[in-house]
Amino acid sequence: MRREDFKKLPLNRKIQILYTEGTFVVGIRYYTHKVNLYLLNDEYIEVFYNHKLDKIDNIDFLNREHTRMKFYLDQIQFSL
C-alpha cells in the first residue's frame, strides 16, 4: 500500500492494518500522549493515544525531522 493510500484511510481501518500487518517497535510518552511506533512495509508509523480521553487522536508516518526522533534512535534502523 502506498503512503498516499494509507493516509486517506479512515482511522479505524488504519488501526486494523497496523495491528494485523504491522510490527510494534516501541512506545514512548510524549506530553499528553502515549506514542506507539509501528513498522509497516518498511515505513515507520506513529499512533498517538490520548490516555486521558481513552482514544487514538492521530496516526501518521514518522517525521524524521521531529524532536521525538531522539526517543526512537536506539530502537530503529533506517535504510539508506
Rank of each mutant, 00 (worst) to 15 (best):
D5R: 03
L80P: 03
D42K: 13
F71Y: 13
R29S: 11
D74A: 07
Q77L: 11
N41H: 11
L40H: 06
D5M: 04
L40Y: 12
Q77F: 08
F61M: 09
T67I: 14
F61H: 07
I59R: 05
D74Y: 08
F24W: 13
R68I: 15
Y49E: 09
K14Q: 12
L73T: 07
I76N: 05
V35M: 06
L53T: 02
K55W: 07
Q75M: 10
K52T: 05
L73G: 01
Y49P: 00
Y44C: 08
E4W: 04
D60W: 00
F6S: 13
Q75T: 08
M1P: 15
D57A: 08
D60S: 12
K8W: 00
Y30R: 13
F48E: 14
K14A: 10
H33R: 08
R68Y: 09
Y49K: 00
N12H: 12
Y72Q: 02
L80S: 03
N41G: 04
F6T: 14
K55P: 09
V35W: 05
V47G: 00
D60Y: 04
D60K: 13
D5W: 07
H66K: 11
H51Q: 03
V35Y: 03
R3V: 13
D60R: 11
I28Y: 08
I17L: 13
I17H: 07
H33K: 09
L39K: 15
S79H: 04
E43K: 12
M69P: 01
Y19E: 11
L39A: 11
E65T: 14
V47E: 14
I76Y: 05
N36W: 12
K34P: 01
Y44Q: 01
H66P: 01
N36V: 03
G22Q: 09
H66E: 12
L73S: 05
D74K: 13
Q75S: 12
N63F: 09
L37Q: 04
R68M: 13
M1V: 11
V35Q: 05
N12Y: 15
L53G: 01
V35D: 03
D57K: 01
T23L: 10
F61P: 01
Q77T: 09
Y31E: 14
Q77K: 15
M69R: 12
F61D: 08
